[in-house]
Simulated scan of single mutants.
Amino acid sequence: MLVDYANKELTQKYQLMAQTIIPRPIAWIVTQNEEGLLNIAPFSYFMGLSSEPATMMVSIGHKSDGSQKDTLKNLRETKKCTICMVDEAHLEAMHFSSKELASNESEAAAFNIETKEIVEGFPPMVAGIPSAFFCEFYQEIDLKGSKTIPLVVEIKAQFIDDEIISDKEKITLDYAPLARVGKSYALLGKNITPPTIK
Score class of each variant (00 low, 15 high):
residue 4 D to T: 12
residue 5 Y to R: 10
residue 5 Y to I: 14
residue 8 K to V: 09
residue 9 E to Y: 04
residue 14 Y to F: 11
residue 14 Y to A: 05
residue 17 M to Y: 12
residue 19 Q to K: 09
residue 19 Q to Y: 00
residue 24 R to A: 05
residue 26 I to Y: 09
residue 28 W to P: 02
residue 30 V to G: 00
residue 30 V to K: 00
residue 30 V to Y: 00
residue 31 T to C: 01
residue 32 Q to Y: 06
residue 37 L to R: 14
residue 40 I to N: 07
residue 41 A to P: 00
residue 45 Y to P: 01
residue 49 L to A: 12
residue 51 S to K: 03
residue 54 A to W: 13
residue 54 A to T: 10
residue 58 V to C: 01
residue 61 G to H: 03
residue 65 D to L: 12
residue 65 D to V: 11
residue 69 K to H: 12
residue 72 L to Y: 10
residue 83 I to Q: 06
residue 85 M to R: 07
residue 85 M to W: 05
residue 85 M to A: 13
residue 86 V to G: 06
residue 87 D to H: 13
residue 92 E to K: 14
residue 96 F to T: 01
residue 97 S to T: 05
residue 98 S to Y: 09
residue 103 S to L: 15
residue 107 E to M: 11
residue 110 A to H: 14
residue 114 E to V: 13
residue 115 T to A: 15
residue 119 V to P: 06
residue 121 G to Q: 12
residue 125 M to N: 04
residue 126 V to T: 04
residue 134 F to K: 00
residue 134 F to Q: 03
residue 135 C to M: 11
residue 136 E to L: 12
residue 137 F to L: 14
residue 141 I to C: 15
residue 141 I to M: 12
residue 142 D to Y: 11
residue 144 K to C: 09
residue 147 K to P: 07
residue 155 I to N: 01
residue 156 K to E: 14
residue 157 A to T: 03
residue 160 I to N: 06
residue 160 I to D: 02
residue 161 D to Y: 04
residue 174 D to W: 06
residue 179 A to K: 02
residue 181 V to A: 13
residue 183 K to L: 04
residue 187 L to D: 00
residue 195 P to Q: 12
residue 195 P to T: 08
